[in-house]
Structure formats: structure tokens, C-alpha cells
Write a protein that binds this DNA or RNA. Sequence first.
RNA 1: GGAAGGGUGGCAGAGCGGUCGAAUGCACCGGUCUUGAAAACCGGAAGCCAGCCAGUGGCUCGUGGGUUCGAAUCCCACCCCUUCCGCCA
Length: 426
Amino acid sequence: MIDIQLLRNDTDAVAKRLAARGFRLDVAGFSALEDARRRIQVATEALQSERNAKSKQIGQAKAAKDQKRVDEIMAEVAGYGDRLKQMEAENDAVQAKLHALVSVIPNLLHQSVPAGTSAEQNAELRRWGEPRRFDFKPRDHVDLGALLGGLDFDTGAKLAGARFVVMRGQLARLHRALAQFMLDVHTTEHGYTEVYTPYMVSGACADGVSSLAKFSGDLFKIQDRDLYLIPTAEYPVTNFVRDEIVPLEALPLKYVCHSPCFRSEAGAAGKDTRGMIRNHQFDKVELVQIVHPSRSYELHEELTAHAEAILKKLALPYRTMLLCAGDTGFSSAKTYDLEVWLPGQDAYREISSCSNFEGFQARRMQARFRNEKARPDTLHTLNGSGLAVGRTLIAVLENYQRADGSVSVPEPLRSYMGGAGKITPA
RNA sequence: GGAAGGGUGGCAGAGCGGUCGAAUGCACCGGUCUUGAAAACCGGAAGCCAGCCAGUGGCUCGUGGGUUCGAAUCCCACCCCUUCCGCCA
């Protein structure tokens, strides 16, 4: 949620900043609603105050055994109940309307975010690694998977439909090795605490990190229950601090979580249908940081570097993109995407997304810390993939393939693979 | 699934219709004392919202409703936790 005070005090400026990301704020509508809210809330609270004062007097009169005085005041308060009930209902209604309006407003963008409406306008900040030159025509992961006998999309489809995969043998093991490797690096080298969480969260948690009203269609919901399959471990992990006041000295909190992710891909029909680039279920190792507002941008850079470190250790060429205004997600103030080189697609493809949400999620979640003046204050939240395991598997297969269809195992993964140096066709 | 008990401030734990947003203890912060610390003593301190910013008002004792002039206290529903039994990875 954006800062409601800021929205009230400087509505036009906020509207202008929102326009930068293509969101049109109905300024007149908001102002009218806000005026009504102020009027009704003030009036309601004034009447409540009066009621409370008189009730207190009744109590005092009763204590003084002054029955005459009690009857007098009771007569005065006679009509209050109904009037109050009506005003409170009116107040609730306008508050709900206002909340509904404000909760679907996206975050304000950081000033470093470039203008733009689509991914084409994202800014490439840096490249690392040289895409390998093949002396044969490189296969994509689907062909490699078929050759190696470890990626089975037919059985995935038989079990659950399109956008599901079954992995077998050495490829299943490589997939596991990647997740283990990432967890080990982040815990031992980058200072994260490993966590294991539920793979379903309540609607309140979902609404804490994003807008459930706006994006519930992207999630798989459990029938007849207020539970959603998580689309990323960001959902459970960030909510660790919901409704909490974190002590200052505990910051920053740094968590790493390996989990499956479930996405309906509702708006992606026909996109990336080949292979396992875009599945309904995939594994991801997620980095989450809960930080002091004064350090969020510094730590955002650090977190991004932590994700990049995995790509470097695996010697996978990648580039770092700064998303433009139109491509930055609802809750984010600033997002870096890491794109890995995929020879099979002859393109860089997203493998990690690292965002600074500033206080946007924290305000939705009521996640606070006790600041230097011992007052509750809004936290900042960060997260990033470190990395998407399925896509990393694709990247390893495609970048490490040999002419005969076998695949070398990157050095850092060999100890996780029982020392195997390569994977060969079955 | 069955039975019982319980959800109150950072924690523990009173209160069970009326100056209760809440006793008390621990922890915490400030002060006195001390060479310093501890102990002792004195004092302070919940969160959210609104505001014509005042030592102002409202809301909050799991959540939502109800009764009442007045609810942490009474009634209803729901959620969650604990223990026991059953079942089970």
C-alpha cells in the first residue's frame, strides 16, 4: 500500500508519479471520497465521545446512589444508540470504499527507474560472461532432455496437463543438486538463514505482498478454503514479520527458502509453450531481506549481487537489466532482472528478479520495527530469486552441451552429483 | 474425527457489567545512590486511526456480530492454540 498520508497531502504529485508507470489515479474521485471520509469519521467519533462521557456520568451517579441523576442522564442518551449505529455503518462503508481504492494502487517508482511501457525499454546495466561459440548447432533443452531421457513432458501432461514436467534420473538429480548448491552458497557465503515454510498461505498473507483483489487470478486457490498455493516463497517468508514490531538490532533479517512455486499463468496462453521455461510448477531458491529503510537500496544491490554470484559460479553468461516503469511489478519500487544466456533460444531469458518494495508490502502487512527513537516505524522489504531452479537447469543443459548430446556438469555441482563430470544419453 | 481447556500489553499473569487501556511480577528506558557496576529507591513506557494539532478525540483485551446508557467482563457464530483419545505420512 502506498503511504496514505502522502496520498492525502500531495494527491497531485502522487498521481503524477503513478502516471509514470501507466496507472491513472482518479484524483477527483479520491478527493471526494476522502472528504466524505473525513466528515463522517469526525462526526461519528464526536458522537461516540459524547456517548462515552454520559455513560461515565451514569456510572458515577450510580456509585453516588443518586438515582434521580441516573434517570436524567439515561433520558438524555435515549436516542444515541440508533443514531450511532447508523453513523458507524456509514463510516465503515466509506472506510471500506477508500481502502478498496487505495489497496489497488501500485507502488511509487524509485527515481532511478527509466521511463518506458514495455520490456523493450528496460535498461541493460551490465553483461557478464561470453556466450559460448558452438562448432555444432546447439540443441535446446527439450531436445537435450529427450536425448538424455530425463525430461518427460508427455508424462507431465498425462498427470496434470500442459505446463508440467516429470524429471528422471540424472536430470532429476541435477535439479536437486542445483537447489542444494544455491542454498549452501547463500547460507555459508552470503549470511542467509535457511527456512522451510508452508506452500500455501492465507488470503491475508497473499494480500500483504501483492493485491489479492487485483492478482488472485494468477494464483491457484484451494477449493472452499482461504488458502492459496504460493507463487513464490516470497509469500510465506515476507509474511514472517506481518503484524510484528521487529527490534532494531535484529535488522536486517535475511532468509533463503527453497520451495516449489505454483502459477496459473492465466495471461500467458500460447507463450513459452515449448519446454519448461514457463510451467505451472517450478522450484525456486528465494532470497528475502527485511531491512531498515535507510539501507534498503544498498542491500538491494547486495542481494542482486548474491543472485549474480550463483550465475558466476556456474559460469553462465548473463546480463543485468533495470526494469523500466511499465515493466516493474505492482508492489515494487525498483527491480533488477537477471537474464541468462540460452543457446537453444539464442537469447537472454529471465532467471531472477530482484526487487525493492520499500515500505509498500510492510504497510500492507503492518510489518514494523522499533526505530532509533523507540517508535514503531515501517520496514522495507526486498526479495530476489537466487535462482529459479528449473530455468537454471535449462541454462546448464544448453550451455554445457556437447555435440553428442551429453552435458558436462559444472565444476561446483559435481560434489552434489556423486562426482559425475557429465551426463550422457540413457 | 471425538473430548476437555484456553486465547488479555515484550513475556508471565490478575480482572468476569461502570473513573479498566487494564493490577502485579519479570524484562525495558531515564534518574537518585556508587570510583564503576549490582542491589535498593523514584519515575517513564502498549498499538492503530483521526484531527479545527490541544497535556484532543475515537478504536483495540483472538475475529465478527448481539444485549446494554455503558462490555476485557454477559449471549451467539467463527478462527486459532494446548492436552487427551482415535487415525495416519
